[in-house]
Structure formats: structure tokens, C-alpha cells
């Protein structure tokens, strides 16, 4: 499989971190970074990672099924994650979630028709003291309010127009 030079460099760097015979260790980080480029974990990627890390495709498949950040379905350009775990729940996380689903017309792990935004209700993202939080891709947005969330979604949608 061919990746962008940047991703390829990253994958090789990851691969080099583990001792000989232990390249299986690279499976998860490699999938993470490759997924960022592809927008999902494809069968082709599974085979590629299996081959690079000297394991069977089934062994990679087992991992993909296990970790919640590895997605076998296409994610949006912006993967918007709303935390509704306790600390965020106490601070209005659930309202944010309701608002987002209503505004975008999609639900948990769904993607907008234009492929721009996918949505996920996530478990504790580690921003409890600055709750509620919404994560756009890997970017944290703390002390979220419905107004700030709307601004975020506006800016995502505007960026494309």
C-alpha cells in the first residue's frame, strides 16, 4: 500500500521502535496513523499492517474489532466526539449530544451525507475538570456550551463551502 510520504515515514518510525521479532507491537499505532490518512481501517490496510508486522490478518482483525477508535466504517473529515460520561453529564454533556444529533440529523457512529462530519458519543475523554468537552478529531474543546458547539460546527461546515 502506498501512503503519503509523511504517513509512510511515521509508520516506519513506529515500526523501528520495537525489538526484532516483536514487530507485532507496532500494529495498533500503525493502524491509528494509517486510519487518519484513509478515514477508516480498510481490509487492504489490515493485510498491509499484518504483513509489515509479521502477523496474520486475523490477528490484526482481532485488534481492530477490539479498540473503539479503530473504525471499519468511513469516518467523516471531522470526527466529532461528544463526551457524556459522568463529569460531562453533570455539566450538560447529554444536552450537547442531543443538540448535535438534532442539528446534524445523524446519530452515534453515523456520518453526514456529504461525508463531512461523523458523530460519536464517547466515553470519558479526560477533560473532566473542564467539562463538558467535545473533541473534533484530536482537538479538545473544553467548557462547551450549545452556542460554542454551534460555532464549532458552523466553522467546520463553512470551511468547506
Amino acid at each position: 500500500m502506498t501512503f503519503t510520504p509523511e504517513t509512510e515515514k511515521r509508520l516506519q518510525d513506529i515500526w523501528s521502535r520495537y525489538p526484532a521479532g516483536r514487530k507485532r507491537s507496532a500494529v495498533i499505532p500503525m493502524l491509528m496513523y494509517a486510519q487518519d490518512e484513509l478515514g477508516m481501517v480498510t481490509q487492504e490496510l489490515i493485510a498491509e499492517v499484518a504483513q509489515r508486522c509479521e502477523v496474520s490478518p486475523l490477528q490484526v482483525e482481532e485488534v481492530v474489532g477490539y479498540y473503539s477508535m479503530l473504525n471499519k466504517q468511513k469516518m467523516g473529515k471531522h470526527h466529532v466526539q461528544v463526551c457524556t460520561n459522568i463529569a460531562c453529564l453533570l455539566m450538560g454533556g447529554e444536552e450537547l449530544w442531543q443538540h448535535t444529533t438534532k442539528r446534524l440529523g445523524i446519530g452515534h457512529k453515523q456520518i453526514t451525507a456529504d461525508g463531512l462530519i461523523s458523530l460519536e458519543e464517547v466515553e470519558c475523554a479526560g477533560a473532566c475538570s473542564w467539562a463538558p468537552c467535545v473533541v473534533d478529531g484530536y482537538e479538545y474543546h473544553h467548557h462547551m456550551t450549545i452556542e460554542k458547539l454551534d460555532q464549532l460546527l458552523d466553522s467546520i461546515q463553512k470551511k468547506v463551502q
Binding site: I28, P29, Y67, S68, L70, C124
Partner: peptide, 10 residues
């Protein structure tokens, strides 16, 4: 010393 990324699992 290296970093290693997880992939979402409590």
C-alpha cells in the same frame, strides 16, 4: 524511550 499510541480502550 518511545511513545506508543493506544486506540481507545479503558
Amino acid at each position: 524511550l518511545y511513545t506508543h499510541s493506544g486506540a481507545g480502550a479503558y
